[in-house]
């Protein structure tokens, strides 16, 4: 990862969403991106230029654009048409973003397009987010890593986030997904956790 002082940055054509640039690099703010927050907390997986990434919940392409700056190719899955229009604009400039308009619950819909990937990054605020990760783990190479942005509040608002997270980790383990680390993203994102997972 590229750091300039305390700033996490990425190298690529700027002006994607009005981000600042530092010495010609695009500032990747932890306030705008949970993945950047994870790196600012000193955790996370270093992105390399040979990495292939499956990105679930690509939304408007803010974080996707930074990931694409680092890696070889990003398969960006997003079901909703309006954010997809924004993502298309980003993908027009970055040829290594492969936009896929599909529901991440149905990976068979994009099975013919997506090759085996080194990293699966998931950020979908849905109640069944653990299940979504599990059905997509088939795209992972055997020693691949999954970065799972868990939003316990989307699963159950009435219980404490820590309790929900524990349950999710247990649920994942029954599906053959081993959680190596659970990082809470406070102070950047209160009540959000990043789970670093592997297929066991």
């Amino acid at each position: 990862m590229i750091w300039i002082g305390d700033h996490l940055v990425s190298e690529g054509p700027g002006g994607v969403y009005g981000e600042r640039t530092v010495q010609g690099y695009r500032l990747w703010s932890p306030k705008r991106s949970k993945l950047a927050a994870l790196y600012h907390l000193g955790k996370g997986i270093d992105l390399e230029n040979y990495h292939r990434v499956l990105y679930l919940g690509a939304a408007n392409g803010t974080t996707v654009s930074h990931v694409a700056d680092y890696v070889e190719v990003v398969y960006a899955v997003e079901p909703a048409p309006r954010p997809m229009q924004d993502l298309m604009v980003v993908a027009r400039q970055r040829k290594n973003i492969i936009p896929i308009m599909a529901d991440a619950r149905k990976p068979e819909r994009y099975l013919p397009l997506v090759e085996k990937v080194d990293i699966i990054y998931q950020d979908v605020a849905q109640p069944d987010q653990a299940e979504i990760l599990s059905v997509n783990s088939r795209f992972l190479v055997s020693d691949g890593i999954m970065v799972f942005m868990l939003k316990p509040r989307s699963i159950d608002v009435t219980r404490t986030p820590a309790y929900v997270a524990e349950e999710v980790i247990h649920e994942l383990s029954t599906k053959g997904i081993w959680t190596e680390e659970c990082v809470w993203l406070s102070p950047y994102y209160p009540d959000h956790a990043a789970l670093i997972c592997k297929v066991s």
Partner: peptide
């Protein structure tokens, strides 16, 4: 290969957005 995949995915996605509207 990636260039072709990118171009095809872009065309397919544009078509999908169109279909929804």
């Amino acid at each position: 290969y990636l260039d072709l995949l990118h171009a095809t995915a872009m065309a397919l996605t544009a078509e999908r957005i169109d279909e929804v509207s």
